[in-house]
Design a protein around this nucleic acid. Structure first.
Lengths: 145, 145
DNA sequence: TTGAAAATGAATATGATTATCAATTTCTAA
DNA sequence: TTAGAAATTGATAATCATATTCATTTTCAA
């Protein structure tokens, strides 16, 4: 369920920092990998509490931060809401349905090449970017019958 | 100083809504057009208070919201900070220097065409998008001498 | 097993934004 | 011009998401 390499990365990071393994962190890690989604902290908290209703708000905050520090999670911000998603080794952006909230990850090398071009034009050295496409997904589009 | 058409747009909007003209709104509008920048509310407040130190926080919030409602300003969000910029008739995105905070507006039709393509691929109907390129501007790049 | 260090979770603090409300200002209509 | 209804202001309080504090509990190395 939990990818071995991710688990090891976390343990190595905790070892290095002198952090302790705890029941709560185990639960949160397990729940994090059970869902392949881009959930808000509120939503992750709800998931985690299905396993242990006593887990606190702050612990979820702290543990998601920990997961992003050791490269297991990415912290994202869509429309003012912080979300944590599974880290990937390739860069990707997001397509968001404004009606149902569905989020699709996509990659487009051509766009990234053009972004580099824009930066060159303005003499900027590109470090990172943020791109979100907002629209209406197929399921939310009224059919034309 | 204040573009006539913008001033008229605001007056028409206020007329329609039954809003009153006030000294504070005049000052804020004037200051808004004095600066061609993407300032935060905090920063606009500071500008406005140079003309009238008694103007309150809430008034600036409300008036910038008013300006965006009638199409004079655009509300933006960079890195968790809300900013208000001059409205333009063409869509544009932003290039942001991570060191000095310099913001450059740019337009790139090719990227927008590719964004449409991505949406088509995932069967989304594109409504709007958000793209920010973060980097280091020329002035902030150490020269290689 | 023990004690130092870290983690938890409840509560509180913070920072940005929004709402409340009494006092003031604007504007319409007589 | 003026009265009064409606809107605005600005100080303050409320809200919301996130971060911090701290006493208690847990972990882990010796």
């Amino acid at each position: 369920m939990i990818p071995t390499d991710k688990k090891e990365a976390l343990l190595a990071y905790m070892e290095e920092k002198g952090f302790h393994a705890t029941r709560q962190r185990d639960i949160i890690l397990k729940e994090f990998f059970r869902k392949h989604r881009h959930l808000t902290i509120e939503e992750w908290l709800a998931e985690v509490r299905k396993s242990d209703p006593k887990i606190g708000y702050a612990t979820v905050y702290r543990t998601l931060k920990l997961l992003s520090e050791c490269g297991i999670a990415f912290k994202r911000e869509f429309g003012g809401q912080v979300r944590y998603e599974h880290a990937t080794d390739h860069h990707h952006d997001h397509l968001i349905c404004m009606r149902c909230g569905k989020i699709v990850e996509f990659e487009n090398k051509q766009i990234e090449i053009l972004q580099e071009k824009v930066c060159k034009k303005y003499q900027f050295k590109l470090t990172t970017h943020k791109m979100e496409l907002y629209g209406i997904c197929r399921r939310c589009t009224p059919s034309k019958k």
